[in-house]
Design a protein around this nucleic acid. Structure first.
Length: 412
DNA sequence: TCTGGGGTCCTAGGACCC
DNA sequence: TCTGGGGTCCTAGGACCC
C-alpha cells in the first residue's frame, strides 16, 4: 500500500431488483410473487425481475417470450418510468446527505466517495448501515452496498452479497480475493473478452495479473493494459459528482417495430419520428451536432449503421431528418427491417442556447443528469413517448406523411 | 411467432493534405 | 525509375456497461 496518497473509501450503492421492487412497493398484491417489469410492445425484454422470479432462471435482458416459457405464472408489469425516476431521485437525495461526492452511475446505482465523511461517523460500516436504514424507511426498498479503496472493487463488492448486502473489501485482502476470482466477474470483462482469455488459458484474475502487461497490451491494445490493472484491483478513476459530469458525446433514439417493414417510405415515417425526438432532446440540453447516424436492423438481427458528417452544426428535427433520409436513400435494403435508429454524434454544447425558466431548467438538469449516465432500458424513450401525446413512442399515425411544420400537430 | 434502448470508448482503414 | 510519412478527419463496427 502506498503511503503517499491517502487511501480512498469508495462506496457503491446498488438498488436490489429496482424496477420490480418499486412495483411491489406500489402494489402490495405483487409482493412475494414472481414478477417482471417490461417495456411496451410485442418484442420486449425483461427490464427487471423480482427475486421471486429469479429461481425460475429469469434474468433481465431475456425476452418476455422466453421468461414466460420458464414461468407461465409470471406476472408481467409494464414499466412506469416516471415512478422509478422519482424513487431514484429520492434515493439520490438521501445519498447526498452523506457526501457531496455522489456519482449517479445509472438509475439504480451510485458511487460515493466517503473518504471525507468518515470523521463524522463511526466508520464506513456505520455510514452504510444508516444509508440502508434510511432508504428502507423512506422508500421501503433495499439496496446492496460495496465498500473498497476504488470504484472497480466497490462495484465488485456490492454484487457479492445481494440482496440487501454489505461487503467491505479491505486493502490487505485484495490480492487473496482476486486470486481465484473468475475473470468474467470483473466489471469491464464481458463475454467476448472472457472467451479470448479462456482461450489463452486464463480463467482467474490471479492468472491474468501474472501475465506481463506488455503481452496483454500487444494482444488487446489499450484494453490489455486495463485488464492488467483490473486483475490487480487497481483503479484510479475518481467519483464524478453530478455537476461535474462531462457533456454527452452522442444522443439518439431507436425502436424495434412490432412488425418488420419493407419499404423505404415506411421506414421514413419512423426516421421522422425519431429525428424529431432526438431534435427536441438535443435542444432542451443545449446541444448541437454534425454527424447523423442511421441504424437499421434486419429481420435476421443483422445490424448496421451509416453516417454522414456535415460542416455546420445542426439542432432541429427536420435537419436531422433530412440528413438521415439522404443516408437512407443510399442504402440498398436486402431484407425486411425490425429496428430503426437515429442518433446524432460529434456534439458540442452551448452553441445553441434555449432559454429556460428557472424551474424548467432545474427539471431539465435532472433529466439530463439521469440521462447522461446511460439510464437503463430506455426509460426516456418511454418518457418521450408519453410526451408525444400519451401514446407509446413507437406509434406513428398511419395516415401521416412527412412534410413540414404540422409535425407536432400530427403526433400530439 | 425468440432476442430493448440508451450510451461510452476503441480500432482499423481510407481519403486527403503538406 | 519506386512505392515517404505524419497528421487530421471520417466511417463502420465491435465490445462493454446498465
Amino acid at each position: 500500500m502506498s503511503r503517499g496518497a491517502r487511501e480512498r473509501v469508495i462506496m457503491h450503492v446498488d438498488m436490489d431488483a429496482f424496477f420490480a421492487s418499486v412495483e411491489q412497493r406500489v402494489n402490495p398484491s405483487l409482493r412475494g410473487r414472481p414478477i417482471v417489469v417490461c417495456g411496451g410492445g410485442k418484442r420486449t425484454v425483461v427490464a427487471a425481475a423480482s427475486y421471486e422470479a429469479r429461481p425460475y432462471g429469469i434474468r433481465s435482458g431475456m425476452s418476455l417470450y422466453e421468461a414466460l416459457k420458464k414461468c407461465p405464472d409470471l406476472l408481467v408489469v409494464q414499466a412506469e418510468i416516471p415512478t422509478y425516476v422519482d424513487a431514484s431521485v429520492r434515493v439520490l437525495k438521501i445519498l447526498q446527505e452523506f457526501t457531496p461526492e455522489v456519482e449517479v452511475y445509472s438509475i439504480d446505482e451510485a458511487f460515493l466517495d466517503v473518504t471525507g465523511s468518515l470523521v463524522l461517523f463511526r466508520g464506513v460500516q456505520e455510514i452504510a448501515r444508516v444509508i440502508k436504514e434510511q432508504i428502507k424507511r423512506e422508500l421501503g426498498l433495499t439496496c446492496s452496498i460495496g465498500v473498497a479503496p476504488n470504484k472497480l472493487l466497490a462495484k465488485l463488492a456490492s454484487g457479492m452479497n445481494k440482496p440487501n448486502g454489505l461487503r467491505i473489501i479491505r486493502q490487505e485482502e485484495i490480492s487473496s480475493l482476486l486470486m481465484d476470482l473468475p475473470v468474467e466477474e470483473m466489471w469491464g470483462i464481458g463475454p467476448r473478452l472472457a472467451t479470448y482469455l479462456h482461450e489463452m488459458g486464463i480463467t482467474t484474475c490471479g492468472q491474468l495479473g501474472n501475465i506481463p502487461c506488455g503481452i496483454l497490451a500487444r494482444r488487446f491494445g489499450l484494453i490489455g493494459t486495463m485488464l492488467y490493472h483490473m486483475a490487480k484491483g487497481i483503479d484510479e478513476s475518481s467519483v464524478t459528482p453530478l455537476g461535474a459530469a462531462p457533456d454527452a458525446r452522442s444522443m439518439g433514439h431507436s425502436m424495434t417495430l412490432d412488425q418488420d417493414i419493407c419499404g423505404k417510405e415506411e421506414i421514413a415515417r419512423y426516421v421522422l419520428l425519431l429525428a424529431e425526438m432526438v431534435g427536441r432532446r438535443l435542444r432542451s440540453g443545449g446541444y448541437a451536432g454534425r454527424t447523423v447516424v442511421l441504424t437499421l436492423r434486419y429481420s435476421d438481427f443483422c445490424t448496421f449503421s451509416r453516417r454522414m458528417t456535415v460542416k455546420r452544426y445542426i439542432t432541429t428535427g427536420p435537419q436531422i431528418y433530412e440528413m438521415a433520409m439522404r443516408i437512407l436513400d443510399g442504402i440498398r435494403l436486402r431484407d425486411a427491417v425490425r429496428l430503426v435508429g437515429v442518433s446524432l454524434a460529434n456534439m458540442v454544447k452551448g452553441r445553441v442556447q434555449i432559454p429556460l425558466f428557472e424551474g424548467e431548467r432545474k427539471g431539465e438538469e435532472l433529466v439530463l443528469a439521469m440521462d447522461r449516465v446511460n439510464d437503463r432500458y430506455g426509460e426516456f424513450t418511454l418518457t418521450w413517448g408519453l410526451l408525444l401525446g400519451g401514446r407509446k413512442g413507437r406509434v406513428v399515425p398511419p395516415s401521416w406523411r412527412p412534410r413540414g411544420g404540422d409535425f407536432m400537430d400530427a403526433i400530439s
